[in-house]
Nucleic acid binder design. Structure first.
Lengths: 133, 133
DNA sequence: CATGATCGCGGGTATATACCCGTTTCTGAT
DNA sequence: ATCAGAAACGGGTATATACCCGCGATCATG
């Protein structure tokens, strides 16, 4: 039937495209949307272990570990130890808070732009559909 | 406002999730959905240069080049030369055709499953929304 | 309290993705 | 025919992502 359009490929394409919108907006701060979003999640859960964070963002733990290491190298988060010596606890650095503050309006801009293009109704549709997949 | 859900992150998450559905279905063949889809595109355009293929699938040329190299190593495609000595022309091998044939029903299964879950109306909505982004 | 099971991580490996740069090949204008 | 510019590609670098394996820490049970 619809041999021409695979839901998966359309999703991936849209995902890359939309990611690039956010990436461009955040570029002045030196972070991409994945990093910015991860930073937000860490702030929300801080202090948080890799495993818990991975669970929240629905990514593999090893992926989150590697992404976190990039943020650490950028001095945006600190990776320390919890009472449980196995756990790597993540916290936001002052520099990380700066990026979060400076990035917020940039992020809002892209978000608004997308919602304006779609309109409130389709925005809600999109949200529902993505959750239903 | 909706600080909790970034369109981009929701898209990326859905993209990973849906990709995994297709990946699981295609796993017996040893290819993932990205490879299978690329293979289909090559068949459709064969013989095709990296640049043209990249344009069709909306990926960076270097990305397509690297992905193609994986398919070549799997003996699913051949990378030869065109009249223009600069161009790398891609063609499907017999083994590649086998994978395409064997993968078709598996791919259809996932596609149908998703459409069944969403219903025809929402499936169409999704398609439109993704194209509108 | 000792020990086997479980948990949390790091690192290896592989693919996906993009950007940039250098090299080879073509093309078009002179 | 020549040569500047453009086009096509490969490879370097960096991040993103997942799976698997092994190691050290913790916990539960006998």
């Amino acid at each position: 039937m619809s041999t021409t359009s695979c839901h998966c490929i359309l999703l991936r394409r849209a995902s890359r495209k939309v990611s690039s919108y956010y990436d461009e907006a955040l570029a002045p701060l030196g972070v991409n949307i994945g990093q910015f979003s991860l930073l937000r999640n860490i702030r929300k859960l801080e202090p948080v272990s890799l495993t818990e964070l991975a669970h929240r963002v629905e990514l593999d733990r090893s992926t989150v570990g590697r992404n976190a290491k990039v943020l650490e190298r950028m001095r945006l988060i600190a990776i320390g130890h919890g009472d449980d010596q196995r756990e790597a606890m993540l916290t936001i650095t002052p520099r990380g808070h700066e990026i979060l503050d400076q990035g917020a309006p940039l992020w809002d801009g892209v978000q608004d732009q997308i919602e304006a293009r779609l309109g409130p109704e389709k925005t809600e549709q999109l949200r529902e559909l993505l959750a239903a997949l």
